[in-house]
């Protein structure tokens, strides 16, 4: 539980941070809240020689809700996501999901940026961001670029981010309609056995649009277009929900671990998705 020795850097601007990341290449890693990275270092599963702490970079913090668009700085903590009144009003889904992440102590430190950049299939925010169709802004030595959350995740711990890029912010349009984040876990502080993020819009008793993303059921989050399509045009009856669940099940690829075997996880994924759809529909 003691990490390898490392050099600690504390830049005060995005450019300075990017410069350090560029200088040290794959020996360097950004440090946000540290609640994923530090445990990996203590287990000596991550050998980081240069730790670039982002805490002193003020421009990475903050939540802006303007004209139906939400922009959140990478260093915004999960605790801040929960307690921002404007955000809670514009996107209650974020609050509902954030409250199901870890425990209060972890949420005081853990950040949105760290959660989405980490690339751990257990993290809840990546699926949520895919559900919201968020866009990530990355800053590198050649300036900024944008990558859709739905294109960002390649495999466990592999993302579209280059080693010398910083994720600076996350942006998405405030969704309309009903929402739900449903997560089954073994205990407080546990990653999901299965989790579902659902957004639903309804008009005249019929579903007009839907977005569904699943968490910890494959080596990346699973945004499931087919499952969403199964709902659109339906009255969100049992048959439509069943079709969405079936479509989702063929898109996921859960692995056996201490949470249980594949068969169980697949079943639970169906249960949490059906519950999330029902709850979202009731709020739409």
């Amino acid at each position: 539980m003691i990490p390898n020795s490392f050099q600690y850097h504390r830049p005060d601007s995005v450019d300075a941070a990017v410069a350090l990341l560029t200088q040290y290449g794959d020996e360097a890693r950004p440090l946000a809240g540290g609640h994923s990275l530090i445990p990996m270092m203590k287990l000596r599963m991550a050998d980081v020689q240069h730790l670039v702490d982002l805490q002193a970079i003020g421009s990475l913090k903050g939540i802006a809700v303007a004209g139906g668009t939400v922009t959140i700085g990478a260093m915004t903590t999960q605790h801040e996501l929960i307690n921002d009144a404007a955000l809670a009003k514009a996107v209650p889904l974020i609050r509902e999901a954030s409250l199901q992440i870890a425990d209060p102590q972890v949420r005081y430190a853990g950040t949105l940026g760290g959660n989405v950049a980490n690339g751990d299939p257990g993290n809840d925010m990546p699926g949520l961001m895919q559900c919201l169709d968020a866009v990530y802004t990355l800053s590198g030595p050649d300036g900024a670029r944008e990558v859709a959350a739905r294109d960002f995740y390649e495999a466990a711990y592999f993302t579209a981010r280059e080693d010398n890029e910083l994720l600076v912010s996350v942006r998405f349009d405030a969704p309309k309609g009903g929402y739900a984040y449903e997560k089954q876990k073994r205990k407080i502080g546990d990653y999901a056995t299965a989790a579902a993020a659902v957004l639903i819009e309804k008009s005249g008793g019929k579903c007009t649009s839907a977005s569904i993303a699943m968490t910890n059921l494959a080596d990346t989050p699973v945004w499931c277009a087919a499952a969403s399509e199964a709902l659109v045009g339906s009255s969100l009856d049992d048959a439509a929900i069943g079709a969405a669940v079936a479509a989702m099940k063929s898109a996921i690829d859960p692995q056996e671990d201490n949470r249980g075997p594949v068969e169980f996880k697949t079943h639970v994924a169906g249960v949490v998705l059906a519950r999330a759809i029902s709850r979202a529909a009731s709020r739409a």
Binding site: R186, T193, R259
Partner: peptide, 16 residues
């Protein structure tokens, strides 16, 4: 009796 083992009991008894 964690989640999956209870689920397994139900599954083995044909309750799903």
């Amino acid at each position: 009796h964690d989640h999956w083992r209870i689920w397994k009991i139900a599954n083995d008894l044909g309750l799903h």
